[in-house]
Every structure is written in C-alpha cells, then in structure tokens.
C-alpha cells in the first residue's frame, strides 16, 4: 500500500471520523460501480453504497489496516449489493412483474467473479490519466469511431489514433501488472472475506 493509503487505512480502523470523507472520496465511485453493476438503478445503487460505508464503519475495529482498504470495502459492497438485489427482487417480483424496472431486477445478479472484474477494471482506469480515460470511454461506452471521436474532441484523426493506442496500451499494462503483482486484484481482492 502507498503511505497515504496506509495512513488512511489506519485512521479508518481506529475510528477517526475525519477519515470518512477521504475514504469515500477514494473508494465511493468503486463501491457505487459494483452496486450499479448489479442493481442497474442509480437510487438503489446509492442506498447500497451508503449501507456499505455504514457497515464498514461498524466493522472498522475488526479491519486489519495492513490489508488493502479497497479490497475490504469491495467485499462488503458485494455482500450488501446482493442483499439489496434479493430484497428488491422479492418485493417487486410479485406484483410488478411486467414493469421494466422489476423485470430487470428479476434477472440474476452478475456472479461474484464478474463483480471482481468491475472492481479490477475500475481501479485500473483510475490509474490512467483523465485524457486516457476519456478516449477509452468514448470508444467503448459511447461506441464512437475514431472519426467521431476526432469530431467530438475537435482534434486530428491521427491524434485520436495515437491517443487511443497509448490509452489501451497503458490500460493493458496496468491490468497485467496488477494480476502479476497481486495474484488477484488490488481494489477488489475477493480473497478477503472478512467484514
């Protein structure tokens, strides 16, 4: 762990209330991503994110600050999110079965392995520069061609191609590095089942 992260983990484990905002700022988006991946509803994902941090705070005394805080929070987030999913499926499934939101929730949640993938890729993207993330987002999430990205960003096509190549190379490098170093994922290490 980086010194800053180790210090933050120590403060959180010791119950320092001033650490809460910093922990949220560091891991709130990660936790929200995991919740959104399963629940597909921003409101429910908000609830699950809030519950995750409250449960983490309750269990802070049992957290070993030498272990990655992100992995520990990811473990709690997965459990909380699956609980919220089950609750919603139970309640909406009976009576709103034709509703869009309900039918989405009736489907099974992604497996734990897939949630680990979300945590892994999310953490890897966080290591990239804002410019690299933007290119990857436009290409994959917004499904734009290089020409369309060039128009959107008002930059030459050749620049888009070189930035895209660089961004993907960095992302691949981070993913390979994390797998090699950690054996698993740092932000969402599924091996830590405490909490």
């Amino acid at each position: 762990m980086a010194p800053d992260e180790a210090d933050l983990a120590q403060r959180f484990a010791a119950g320092d209330p001033d650490s809460i905002r910093v922990v949220y700022q560091s891991y709130g988006r990660l936790v929200f991503s995991i919740a959104y991946r399963v629940l597909r509803d921003a409101g429910l994902a908000e609830d699950a994110t809030q519950q995750t941090f409250v449960q983490a705070w309750r269990a802070a005394a049992s957290y070993d600050p030498t272990r990655p805080l992100g992995a520990w929070l990811t473990t709690i987030a997965k459990r909380v999110t699956i609980d919220v999913h089950r609750r919603e499926r139970r309640h909406r499934g009976h009576d709103d079965i034709d509703g869009t939101a309900a039918s989405e929730l009736i489907t099974l949640p992604p497996s734990v392995d897939h949630l680990d993938d979300v945590a892994e890729v999310h953490s890897a993207l966080d290591e990239l520069s804002s410019q690299d993330r933007t290119i990857i987002r436009l290409q994959h999430f917004d499904d734009l061609t290089h020409h369309e990205i060039a128009d959107r960003l008002e930059i030459p096509l050749g620049t888009v191609k070189s930035r895209s190549h660089r961004a993907h190379r960095r992302l691949a490098g981070v993913l390979v590095h994390r797998r090699t170093v950690n054996g698993t994922i740092d932000g969402g290490g599924g091996s830590d089942e405490r909490g």
Partner: peptide, 23 residues
C-alpha cells in the same frame, strides 16, 4: 465490461454527505 455503464456512471455529488451523515 468497458462498455458497461457501471464503470462510467458517476454517483451523485450529494451521496458523500449522505454517507457522512449516516455514519
């Protein structure tokens, strides 16, 4: 996964204060 909204949807800004208040 890179095309999945879960990686790109941002939590609302007010969620931080909600979390702090709940704790």
């Amino acid at each position: 996964l890179l095309a999945d909204p879960s990686l790109w949807t941002e939590p609302p800004a007010e969620l931080q204060e909600k979390v702090v208040e709940a704790i």
